[in-house]
Nucleic acid binder design. Structure first.
Lengths: 359, 359
DNA sequence: TTGTATGCGTTATCAT
DNA sequence: ATGATAACGCATACAA
C-alpha cells in the first residue's frame, strides 16, 4: 500500500511517478527483471513455475495493478466505445445502451456515456475528447437534425475519427447518402406510422391528427411521411391543420391538444409521434370528457413501459431498440461488409384504437 | 492522413508505433522541437506567436490529435468514472446516470457504464479493469445484497481501489458500518413505505399486503421495515401471510397476486415494493373484476414515468434519483468531509388509494 | 528460461 | 524563446 519511492529515479526530469506500485517495483521485490514480470502478467508459458510463483507473490504483496493506460500505449489495451446521446432520458436510451453493452463488453470494450444536450459545440468537443482517448468507435445515438449543417458536421467527425482509426456509427439514424462509409443502424420509422395510420383508416377514421410533427429530425420526419403516405394511398386529403407541431413531451402534447379542442377542430383519431405525445393527448382529451376509444382513437410509437397498463391500453408501434444497440455495438467493434442496417418495427394493436363512429 | 514512418526508428525493438500522427511528426513538419509543440498544445505563453502559428498549421495539416492515454501516463489526463450497475434497465437507472454525468462531466471526467448482471465474479473483474484504467472513482449503483459475503467483497474492492487512488462510492445503498471510509448516497427507503403505509392505515385499512418482499437487498429490506413499523405503531399485528415474496417485476407480481386471490386471502390494500409490483398487482386484481380503489387500494414506490397516467393514477413514493446520482458524482470527483448522505423521499398521493370500506 | 535494451507519445526540467 | 533529454509504465526483440 505504502509506496516507498524505489530509488531508480536518478534525474529530476520528466513527470513525477504515480503513487501506485509499478512493474519495476514488483521486479525488484521478486528479484527478477521487469521483462519476467511482464511475461508472468501476459501468461507467457516460458517462465519457470517457481519464478512465476515468486512474482505472483510479490504482485499480491505490493497490491500491484497493471496500468491499462500504459498498456494501451503499446497497442495492447482495451479501447473505449463512446456512446454520444442527446440526453440519457427515456426508456429507449436504456434499451439501446443495454444492447451496445451486450455486444461490446464480451470483447473487453468499455462503453463511455456522453451527453451533448443538443449542443453541437459540446458534441464536437466530446468527439475530440474521445479521439484523444483513442476510442475504438463513436456511436451517435438517437435522432439528429436533418439540416445541411449536420451533414457537414458529420463529414468533419468522420475525418477526425478516421485520423485516429475510430469507427463512426449512426445509431437510430439513417444512412447519410453523402457519407456511405459511415456505418448506421436505423429502424423503420416510416413503416411504423404507415401501418398505424393504415390501421386507423381501416377502422374508418378519416380526420386523423398527427401529433408532434417536426421537420428537423429524421425520426419525426419519417414518421410524418408514413402518416402522409397512408392517407394518400387511401385517397384521403392531408389536412395541414391536423398536423400539429411541438408536441414532443407529455406536457407540450397535452397543451397542444387542449388548444385544438378549444378551437373546436374535428377529428376522430390521433397518431402520436411518440408514446409521450399520445399520452399528452389522452390527458387533454380525458380532461374534456372525450372517451377513448369511443369518441377518439389514439395510437403511439415506441411502446415504452406501461403503455399496455393504461386504460385503455395504448395501441403503438414497437421498435427493437435493444437489437438496434446490439447491432450498433457489433458495427463498432468490427464493421462488417454491410455497414447499413434497417430493422423492422411491429404494430401493437391494443384498446385505444377502435372503429370510427358513423358520422 | 497517410503516415510515412518518420525515420526516427532505428532499432526494431519495442512496440510498433500507431498509424496516427504524433507530436514528433508535428515537430518535424513545423521544424521545431517536440517540446515546443507540447508548449503550443498546453497553451504555454512562452512561445513566439509566429512559431505557434506554424505549429498550429502543421497540426491541422497532419490531422494531429493528442494521445490522451500518453498524457494520462504523466498524470495530466482526464480520468474515468466507472458506473457499475446490475442492469441498465428501468427509469431509475437513467435518472441516476444523468445525475452522475451532470456533476462529473464539467470537470472533464468520463462516465464508463458497466453491467454486472448480478454476477459477483463479473463485478470483481470489471472493478479490476477500472483499476487498471486508473479510474478516478467507481460507483456501485443500485441495491446490492445484504449478505455478509458482500461486505467482504466490498472490503476487498475498497482495498483494491485504494491502491490505485480511486474513490469508491455506494449509490442507492446505505453506508456500510464496517467500512465508514466508503462514500455512500442513499435515500430514505424506510421512510417511504413508512409514510405510504401510514397513509393507508389512516384511510382505515387494516389488512395490507406487502407485495414483493425480499430479504437479500437493502432496498427491499428497508422498505419492508417501513411497512412493518407503520403497522406496529398503529397497533396492527403484522400478518406474515400478507407479506408476499418474489414479486419484483410486473409479470411475477401479477402471478403472485393471482395466487393470493385464488387462495381467497382477505385484504383491502397493497403496498408494492416498487411500482412494477404495484402494476402487476393491479393487472391481476383487474382481471378478477376487483375495483381500484373502491375494493382495494394500491400504492407503489419510485414514481416511474406514466404512473400518474394509469387509471386510477398510482399513489407512490417519489425518490430523488437524479439528485442521488448528482451527489454520488460529486463524491466521486471530490469526496468532501461528510461521505454519507441520505436523501428524503416524498409520498405522491393519487387516486389508487382511498378510504377503506366499512367492513 | 531470463535479462538487457529500446520504443510507445507525452510532459517537465534543465540548459541555451 | 527554444532545444535536448529524461522520465511516466509497459511490452517486445534480441542476446545470453
Amino acid at each position: 500500500m505504502t509506496n516507498s519511492t524505489t530509488g531508480h529515479r536518478e534525474g529530476t526530469r520528466g513527470p513525477a511517478r504515480f503513487s501506485t506500485t509499478n512493474l519495476r517495483d514488483v521486479a525488484l521485490h521478486a528479484r527478477v527483471s521487469p521483462a519476467t514480470v511482464s511475461r508472468v502478467i501476459s501468461e507467457n508459458p516460458s517462465v519457470r513455475p517457481e519464478t512465476r510463483e515468486r512474482v505472483l507473490a510479490s504482485m499480491a504483496e505490493l497490491n500491484y495493478v497493471v496500468n491499462g493506460l500504459a498498456r494501451s500505449m503499446t497497442g495492447r489495451g482495451s479501447r473505449a466505445i463512446a456512446f454520444l446521446v442527446n440526453n440519457m432520458v427515456g426508456p429507449t436510451f436504456a434499451e439501446i445502451a443495454t444492447g451496445v453493452e451486450e455486444s461490446t463488453s464480451a470483447s473487453g470494450n468499455r462503453v463511455t456515456m456522453l451527453t451533448t444536450h443538443g449542443d453541437p459545440d459540446r458534441e464536437l468537443e466530446l468527439l475530440i475528447q474521445m479521439c484523444e482517448q483513442r476510442a475504438a468507435a463513436v456511436l451517435l445515438v438517437g435522432a439528429t437534425p436533418t439540416d445541411a449543417s449536420f451533414t457537414d458536421r458529420l463529414h468533419r467527425y468522420s475525418e477526425l475519427l478516421a485520423s485516429v482509426g475510430a469507427q463512426l456509427v449512426l445509431c437510430g439514424r439513417p444512412e447519410d447518402p453523402a457519407l456511405p462509409d459511415v456505418a448506421s443502424v436505423y429502424y423503420d420509422n416510416y413503416g411504423g406510422t404507415l401501418s398505424s395510420t393504415r390501421h386507423l383508416i381501416h377502422l374508418g377514421h378519416r380526420r386523423i391528427i398527427f401529433h408532434g410533427a417536426a421537420t428537423n429530425h429524421t425520426t419525426a420526419e419519417d414518421r410524418l411521411r408514413g402518416y402522409r403516405d397512408a392517407l394518400h394511398e387511401a385517397g384521403i386529403e392531408v389536412a395541414e391543420d391536423l398536423i400539429i407541431p411541438d408536441a414532443f413531451n407529455v406536457r407540450e402534447a397535452q397543451e397542444r391538444m387542449d388548444n385544438i379542442l378549444a378551437a373546436g377542430t374535428k377529428f376522430s383519431a390521433v397518431v402520436g409521434v411518440r408514446d409521450e405525445a399520445a399520452v399528452g393527448a389522452i390527458r387533454a382529451l380525458r380532461k374534456r370528457g372525450v372517451s377513448i376509444p369511443d369518441d377518439v382513437s389514439v395510437v403511439g410509437f415506441d411502446d415504452v413501459p406501461f403503455m399496455e397498463d393504461l386504460t385503455p391500453s395504448l395501441t403503438t408501434v414497437r421498435a427493437p431498440y435493444r437489437q438496434i444497440g446490439k447491432l450498433a455495438g457489433e458495427l463498432a467493434v468490427a464493421a462488417g461488409s454491410d455497414l447499413h442496417k434497417v430493422l423492422p418495427v411491429e404494430l401493437q394493436i391494443r384498446e385505444s384504437s377502435a372503429e370510427a363512429r358513423i358520422s
